[in-house]
Design a protein around this nucleic acid. Structure first.
Lengths: 250, 250
DNA sequence: CGTGTTTTTGACTTCAGTCAATTAAAGTGG
DNA sequence: CCACTTTAATTGACTGAAGTCAAAAACACG
């Protein structure tokens, strides 16, 4: 258990995105008690039915949240990047209603729930920032419902790829609009409610159209502008501060 | 603008569901400044792009939140019952990324956003209750993603109907497991990502199987137990307190 | 190098969408 | 209370996007 290191810097970075935090607020965040763990690809951070005591911050790498349906289908409901608090969702709920799993090798910081909640209420600026994070996540969820419910395969996949581009850019990963996505086609499929086979064909089409370039287990976006058109993507729902947006997309 | 009436009672009821609120907290909630408005069926409460200044509490009736895709499709991303705060979602976000519309004639209370936020931080119990509401909504959104992304038509529709049953029961509307749902088939379709025509056929099938009984613009659930099986429905994700669940489903 | 993923491809199936016409309410105004 | 309009539900025939199955190819890694 560490106190006061710089491990939590990505959290401060993320929370300051919308409204600046005072030095004291930042210090208080960095001083949160936490334990860092390195997780292997595929390792579960939380399983449906668990009663979590800690929230988890993604320090590096990727994590997904997913649900399993009665007939064995899997639906990924969220993907978390560096700086994301994966488990604020469960911070006040007793029983986890979904699974959280490492999408890659990753490093995560585990923070006791009460410490976070306490800090949120003792420092309103921090509390608001945390709340805002939750709200943005809700917004993303709504967009995902729309994506999966009302868009065709091509559009869906393109949309997801765009979301990634913007979110990765916002946390400062990846050069310009040329991003790499370390997801298998099966995982992409589970994110957009399609089969892996169909995702494969869809990616091939995007590739042929010159919007992406693929290699194994990853996708590179070559033309974000056109991809956004194809994907019916407008970034408003991400509620990113203006300066964080890729330039050519104001 | 009223102060201190009983109009906000449904809010207190809802927020007390998980953890009891002290008399003072309840009084503070009831004392929130607010304006009551009666809305016609179909009237917009908020449009995408608006910058809201007030949050809206559903006093009676139903409201929906929906998004419109580039090709004109509509996806309903949430349905709100009496006692729901429709717009906490936007309370800290500047620009609304979706529409809110009255599903029926309804009565709504509009509360200034700052008043709510302030109260949330000055009274941690209230703040936690509000936060919890937000989290439960997030949980429902995740289930919707799953529903739309990984379940077939029959299951999807059955699942939605079950969710209604439980949520209506939790706020004390409707006798036992015999509920009426004032939604058109088109609205149902937009909630589960299907076409109205297919929803019609699906409802017909559920009817034939003896799980529901339909009349115009409404559905009555006759066998909640079986409907839950058909709909791959387990109520955990609603995070309802135990006592609020229909008995036969513990 | 062999073993296990992940990706790719092709042939075939199916669930849900589309189109279009019909029926049944629910209002509405005279 | 009745014609008249409108909105919602229903039905049937046909289409099509995405799923299924199964096998082959391409990597990644020990």
């Amino acid at each position: 258990m560490q106190i006061g290191s710089q491990t939590l810097a990505p959290l401060v970075r993320k929370l300051s995105l919308h409204a600046p935090l005072s030095q004291e607020d930042q210090a208080a965040l960095l001083a949160l008690p936490h334990a860092v763990r390195n997780l292997e690809l595929g390792q579960y951070i939380l399983r449906e039915g668990d009663v979590p005591t800690h929230s988890c911050l993604v320090v590096s790498g990727f994590a997904i949240r997913h649900k399993i349906t009665g007939n064995g289908g899997r639906q990924i409901v969220n993907i978390h990047l560096s700086g994301d608090m994966v488990d604020l969702q469960n911070s006040l709920l007793t029983t986890a209603d979904h699974n959280v799993q490492a999408l890659s090798r990753m490093s995560a910081a585990f923070l006791p729930r009460e410490a976070i909640v306490e800090l949120g209420f003792s420092r309103p600026a921090v509390g608001k920032a945390l709340w805002l994070e939750t709200l943005v996540e809700g917004s993303i969820s709504r967009e995902w419902i729309t994506n999966v419910g009302r868009r065709d395969a091509q559009t869906r996949v393109a949309h997801l790829l765009c979301e990634f581009a913007y979110r990765l850019d916002a946390v400062g990963i990846g050069p310009e609009c040329n991003y790499e996505l370390p997801m298998t086609q099966e995982q992409l499929a589970d994110s957009v409610g399609l089969t892996p086979v169909h995702v494969n064909r869809t990616l091939k089409a995007l590739d042929a159209a010159g919007l992406t370039k693929r290699s194994r287990k990853s996708v590179v976006i070559t033309d974000l502008q056109k991809l956004a058109e194809t994907g019916d993507f407008r970034s408003t729902y991400l509620h990113l501060p203006p300066h964080a947006l890729p330039k050519h997309h104001q």
